[in-house]
């Protein structure tokens, strides 16, 4: 039973990270119907910036929590900047082009950013310092859930609540929802669609950066390639939950995380990716629009 709970919690942790990244995919997809293939790379860049900042600060003698905060903030700032630039360079000129074009542009961007980090930094795995301290009060249950896992769970939950509030109650949130429903109509009633799209990319990138820093510190290493797999998994989560739907991304992330965790725990960790994609295919066959997605009728 304890093993089950342990797997459950680790699945939850993993799933909440997937959910965090999946939100970026789903928000962008909801508005411009594009799989932002380079989103995983934004996550990777966030983790890398955090790694560099940590390294510099440690060498110049900073300590503990201050490093975590500065590194986290800079990671978010840089991820947002990259996300914003990405949209402006690679996607905006393609608005209105056939659907395949922006998708291929996105794949190109993903390859570009991966190799940019590879060339600018290194192809090796780099050790990422454990930024999250071990809390004393966690001691009694530390064998089931670690402090880092707790921090990840709490952070993602807080972030998601904030995102929900942002989308529900702020002006930009309303504009985003309007654009999602009907872009040309939103433009007609005075919504600055370009700005909404940029904002969506920025918010999604910020979420990815948070995920990146948390994961890097949890797993303890970074590499130019981590974004690819995380991105694919997160996108799978978004599709599972029903792409375009924000609660769907969260549910999809959790379902995927739990599936992987249980598959790894009870079957074999070698095949967890197979289970993840097997689940995706299965759900898409039964519910082509995902768990929470609505089957939309194409207008003819």
């Amino acid at each position: 039973m304890e093993y089950f709970i342990e797997l459950f919690l680790s699945g939850l942790t993993r799933g909440s990270i997937y959910a965090l990244i999946a939100l970026g995919y789903t928000m962008v997809y909801g508005i411009i119907q594009l799989i932002n293939f380079a989103h995983g790379e934004i996550y990777m860049i966030g983790a890398f910036v955090a790694y560099i900042v940590c390294g510099v600060l440690t060498i110049y003698g900073f300590h503990g929590v201050s490093i975590l905060i500065i590194a986290g903030l800079l990671a978010i700032v840089y991820s947002c900047a990259y996300g914003y630039t990405l949209e402006k360079v690679a996607y905006r000129p393609l608005r209105g082009a056939p659907r395949l074009s922006p998708l291929i542009s996105a794949i190109g961007m993903s390859i570009f950013l991966q190799n940019y980090v590879l060339l600018a930094q290194t192809p090796d795995f780099l050790p990422f310092p454990a930024l999250i301290p071990d809390f004393a009060f966690m001691e009694p249950i530390a064998h089931i859930i670690g402090s880092a896992e707790l921090v990840i769970l709490v952070t993602t939950m807080v972030t998601m609540v904030m995102l929900t509030l942002l989308i529900k109650y702020t002006k930009i949130g309303k504009a985003m929802r309007a654009t999602q429903q009907d872009m040309s109509m939103a433009r007609l009633v005075g919504v600055n669609v370009d700005r909404v799209i940029s904002t969506t990319f920025i918010i999604g990138s910020a979420l990815a950066a948070i995920g990146g820093v948390l994961v890097a510190s949890y797993i303890g290493q970074v590499n130019f390639y981590i974004g690819f797999l995380a991105g694919v998994k997160a996108f799978t989560a978004a599709v599972l939950g029903g792409i375009g739907s924000i609660p769907g991304a969260v549910i999809g992330g959790l379902v995927l995380g739990l599936t992987e965790s249980f598959a790894a725990g009870y079957v074999s960790s070698d095949y967890e990716d197979v289970f993840a994609f097997g689940l995706l295919v299965l759900i898409l066959i039964m519910r082509p629009a995902g768990i929470l997605g609505k089957a939309t009728k194409q207008k003819v």
């Binding site: 360079v89 690679a90 542009s105 190109g108 961007m109 991966q114 190799n115 940019y116």
Partner: peptide
Amino acid sequence: IIFGAAMV
């Protein structure tokens, strides 16, 4: 990196 950029 050139492939990627060229695709975009």
